[in-house]
Design a binder for these strands. Sequence first.
DNA 1: CCTCGCGTTATTGTATACAAAACGCGCCCG
DNA 2: CGGGCGCGTTTTGTATACAATAACGCGAGG
Lengths: 220, 220
Amino acid sequence: MSRASEQAYAKIRAHVLSGAARAGEQLTEDQLAQIAGVSRTPVREAVRRLEDELLLVRSDTKRLFVADWSRDDIEEMFALRQMLECHAAERAAQRINRAQIAALEAINRTLKDAIELPAPDVARFLEANRGFHEVIVDAAHSPRLGQMLAKLVEAPVVLRTARTYSPDDLRQSARDHDELIASFAARDPDWARAVMGSHLRRAFHTFAKAVGPAASDQEP
Amino acid sequence: MSRASEQAYAKIRAHVLSGAARAGEQLTEDQLAQIAGVSRTPVREAVRRLEDELLLVRSDTKRLFVADWSRDDIEEMFALRQMLECHAAERAAQRINRAQIAALEAINRTLKDAIELPAPDVARFLEANRGFHEVIVDAAHSPRLGQMLAKLVEAPVVLRTARTYSPDDLRQSARDHDELIASFAARDPDWARAVMGSHLRRAFHTFAKAVGPAASDQEP
DNA sequence: CCTCGCGTTATTGTATACAAAACGCGCCCG
DNA sequence: CGGGCGCGTTTTGTATACAATAACGCGAGG
């Protein structure tokens, strides 16, 4: 989008993800306009996108709040993501080309580097990981699918919990990626689907362990 | 949404679906504002929704066009819908309550009525059909899933091709619905998924037969 | 003491005017 | 003759003012 609305989007998003705005807190368009340094018009545009991405929600009467994800919401999100990405992997295995496989290999090398630096660089890991999954979705040749997944992957939970991954978790992810690449090279949709399934399912359990078995945080 | 933007949405949507605007044709916000009888502000809001629903698309440089669905797009859409609705049916079978099953039975009676009137009333059939699937998605208890499906189900192709269904097709749909209800009553997720799968797959082939094996229409 | 209604204030929705950007066309120069 | 460049026009983007609507508090009546 265009300059102002893009900036509004970025700033509001950062404001929410950084935790500066607490879950359930009300936000007004004026407030956000000030934060973003633009007028309400582009703010409204940005807010619509963020609503769509479920970072913000509206009350019955159009008032705006920071979304409060319940544990059920999060589980649901993981389940949907798994379903969609498994489908993507399956399609990708049938459609991927050599260049894309090469791209996956290159990205996964970068990703491994990010793990093994003196200390793991989670930001770089995430960036590479994002790129990896993006190539797969591209290879699936299903724009709608890509659009849906983009929403789920961008969801706040994923980003906020990223830092809870241990080096072992990260290394296992890299190994999953290697196997995914192998399944693509073999053009075996069933294999690709299965690997993707366990890859994401493990991510869910890592997350679940990190936040504990019940709801994560609450105070008066 | 609020009055003006809702009206804009409805009118623009009708304008596109009615075929008054041809696929690929450019639309300007001013033009749409005139059609809807409101100012550009709510039009922009409506247009965003329609973009999201893929009835409209933007060129690289923000100009607005009526979406032109290729056959591949349509097949993709059916495939995604099938994946999502099968998942919904599976979940619904595990979660649906008596009241919802009763609702499905009532809706399906209405639907059968709509078929057997002197002549089939396709509009009423579609309305009932929509309601039927909606109850299932509700019963699946997955708001995100519902949101995604809403987009796909509203897609233009489904609506435009509805009229190509024969009475036999409609009757078969009603029978599928009966079996779905049976699978829910039995709380059998596998059964529900399977029935939903064949239900939608058949719909796709009915569609495919109607528009012919290749692209549907073109002229200079 | 509760609650219902009303006026005030906060917040969102819409219109309009202006700014920025993109398209198209014709002209100039190679 | 062709291709790129400038300039008027069209179209989208942003700001701002105003309108409509929802939340809130306060006071009167039960």
